[in-house]
Design a protein around this nucleic acid. Sequence first.
DNA 1: ATTTAAATTAGAATAATTCTAATCTAGTAA
DNA 2: TTACTAGATTAGAATTATTCTAATTTAAAT
Lengths: 142, 142
Amino acid sequence: MKELIEKYKERGFKLTPQRLAILKFLDGNTSHPTADDIYRQIKKDYPTVSFATVYNTLQMLQKKGEVAEITIDHQKKHYDPNPKPHHHIICISCNKIGDVFEDYSEALRLPYHIEEEFKPVGSHINFYGICRGCQKKHKRRN
Amino acid sequence: MKELIEKYKERGFKLTPQRLAILKFLDGNTSHPTADDIYRQIKKDYPTVSFATVYNTLQMLQKKGEVAEITIDHQKKHYDPNPKPHHHIICISCNKIGDVFEDYSEALRLPYHIEEEFKPVGSHINFYGICRGCQKKHKRRN
DNA sequence: ATTTAAATTAGAATAATTCTAATCTAGTAA
DNA sequence: TTACTAGATTAGAATTATTCTAATTTAAAT
Ligand SMILES: [Mn+2]
Ligand SMILES: [Mn+2]
Ligand SMILES: [Zn+2]
Ligand SMILES: [Zn+2]
């Protein structure tokens, strides 16, 4: 967090209250918020904040590698404030997202004919499942 | 293909020329078209076809498990006419999509604390890479 | 205090997808 | 063949996420 602020200043970016609020919200946040989630949170303290600011800040942070977009929902983008490579598990019922910090890279060898066509640079796994809460809900219905 | 048409009729769905054209376009298609790709193709033969028809048909086919949505592009949905479970590799430069028919499920064991929270039902891997064409382009630039 | 490049803002623009309500038609049965 | 009708198609409007724009404000350097 502090380092992030320092990095900011070093690189000649202005540290505005809105940005600071966004940084604070994201720092250590293990949820996977959408732009709208962030917007609504920041709006509590800065009622005039605009979506443009949220999107601009997210784009900057993305370029700096501090947050990552995750590709799980076609409706809206989700952002991951944890830039360390990891995977995700999504509840197919309520869309709850969990982190999976497990390195599968050794096991994910590509078939030879694919490696001829693509030079691999990384991978990301989406696990699907049903979360505790939703399992209970389903049981109750029966 | 024929089976698909039969299945259609059996289930009491009408087989319209537009739907048939969409089915034909998708049959054996190893690309991963968007609704717009399909729309433009069908429009060649049926100039009055509407987006609603394309989306409706895709939704039906999805419900029947004949096509799958793939989650790789936040801009637009891509559809996969091959419903057999498989993974994908995406060129980070031109977004070309390739199929990866390799079963990694044995290797993808989830950590215990995740299995406590989620009952797993499946997984999908996005590999990222740089395709032949894009590798060449990059070299040329240097 | 002044300056100014960068950031913020409200609101417009864009683009993918879904919805709506009127019209049409595939398939059935007289 | 003809008539019927549930379901399909259509044009265009609505919705929604994201990006763009141009005017205004501000952080931070001087
Ligand atoms: Mn995560
Ligand atoms: Mn595929
Ligand atoms: Zn759930
Ligand atoms: Zn490429």
